[in-house]
Amino acid sequence: MNPILEATETGLVTDEQTVRDYDELREPAKAALPAAVEREAVSIPEAAAEDLTDGEVVRFTGYYRVSIGQ
């Protein structure tokens, strides 16, 4: 079963949080993030999940906290 990616827009980013830019992601994660932003949750390939850390914040069209689940 493929991992499930959720991307939730977050308004506040603290100094303690690490924020990665969309451009820093590898291609599989770059392909997966826009779909997760548009929908509540999407199934993604394992290669995309390997480039994302559960709970991290990615700057895309806004700041999004990503969640990876099964």
Score class of each variant (00 low, 15 high):
residue 1 M to N: 13
residue 1 M to F: 11
residue 1 M to R: 13
residue 2 N to L: 07
residue 2 N to S: 12
residue 2 N to P: 15
residue 3 P to S: 06
residue 3 P to R: 01
residue 4 I to E: 08
residue 4 I to K: 04
residue 4 I to S: 06
residue 6 E to M: 09
residue 6 E to G: 04
residue 6 E to Q: 08
residue 6 E to S: 10
residue 7 A to Y: 02
residue 7 A to S: 08
residue 7 A to M: 06
residue 7 A to W: 02
residue 7 A to Q: 02
residue 8 T to W: 09
residue 8 T to N: 14
residue 9 E to Q: 12
residue 10 T to C: 15
residue 10 T to H: 03
residue 10 T to K: 03
residue 11 G to K: 09
residue 11 G to M: 13
residue 12 L to W: 14
residue 13 V to Y: 10
residue 13 V to D: 10
residue 13 V to I: 15
residue 13 V to H: 08
residue 15 D to Y: 10
residue 16 E to M: 07
residue 16 E to T: 06
residue 16 E to L: 15
residue 17 Q to P: 11
residue 17 Q to N: 07
residue 17 Q to S: 12
residue 18 T to Y: 11
residue 18 T to L: 15
residue 19 V to N: 13
residue 19 V to Y: 12
residue 20 R to P: 05
residue 20 R to M: 11
residue 20 R to L: 15
residue 21 D to R: 11
residue 21 D to F: 12
residue 22 Y to K: 04
residue 22 Y to L: 14
residue 22 Y to P: 12
residue 22 Y to E: 06
residue 24 E to F: 05
residue 24 E to G: 09
residue 25 L to S: 07
residue 25 L to P: 08
residue 25 L to V: 09
residue 26 R to T: 15
residue 26 R to Y: 11
residue 27 E to G: 04
residue 27 E to W: 05
residue 27 E to M: 07
residue 28 P to R: 00
residue 28 P to I: 01
residue 29 A to M: 07
residue 29 A to C: 12
residue 29 A to S: 10
residue 29 A to P: 11
residue 29 A to Q: 05
residue 29 A to G: 12
residue 30 K to Q: 15
residue 31 A to N: 02
residue 32 A to Y: 02
residue 33 L to R: 00
residue 33 L to P: 05
residue 33 L to W: 02
residue 33 L to C: 06
residue 33 L to V: 04
residue 34 P to M: 08
residue 34 P to Q: 02
residue 34 P to I: 02
residue 34 P to A: 05
residue 35 A to R: 00
residue 35 A to V: 00
residue 35 A to L: 13
residue 37 V to W: 03
residue 37 V to R: 03
residue 37 V to H: 00
residue 37 V to N: 01
residue 38 E to C: 07
residue 39 R to G: 07
residue 39 R to F: 11
residue 39 R to D: 13
residue 40 E to D: 10
residue 40 E to T: 01
residue 41 A to K: 01
residue 41 A to P: 11
residue 41 A to S: 10
residue 42 V to S: 07
residue 42 V to K: 00
residue 42 V to C: 09
residue 42 V to D: 07
residue 44 I to W: 01
residue 44 I to Y: 03
residue 45 P to C: 08
residue 45 P to E: 08
residue 45 P to S: 06
residue 47 A to L: 06
residue 48 A to H: 04
residue 48 A to T: 01
residue 48 A to V: 02
residue 49 A to S: 11
residue 50 E to D: 15
residue 50 E to H: 13
residue 50 E to F: 10
residue 50 E to T: 07
residue 50 E to Q: 12
residue 50 E to L: 13
residue 50 E to W: 06
residue 51 D to P: 08
residue 51 D to L: 03
residue 51 D to C: 06
residue 51 D to E: 12
residue 51 D to S: 08
residue 51 D to M: 05
residue 52 L to Y: 04
residue 52 L to Q: 06
residue 53 T to V: 13
residue 53 T to I: 14
residue 54 D to N: 14
residue 54 D to F: 02
residue 55 G to R: 01
residue 55 G to A: 04
residue 55 G to Y: 02
residue 56 E to N: 05
residue 56 E to I: 02
residue 56 E to A: 08
residue 58 V to R: 00
residue 59 R to D: 11
residue 60 F to T: 00
residue 60 F to C: 10
residue 60 F to G: 08
residue 61 T to V: 12
residue 61 T to L: 14
residue 62 G to R: 03
residue 62 G to H: 11
residue 62 G to Y: 04
residue 63 Y to H: 11
residue 64 Y to A: 05
residue 64 Y to T: 06
residue 65 R to A: 04
residue 66 V to S: 07
residue 66 V to C: 12
residue 66 V to R: 00
residue 67 S to Q: 02
residue 67 S to A: 09
residue 68 I to K: 01
residue 70 Q to I: 04
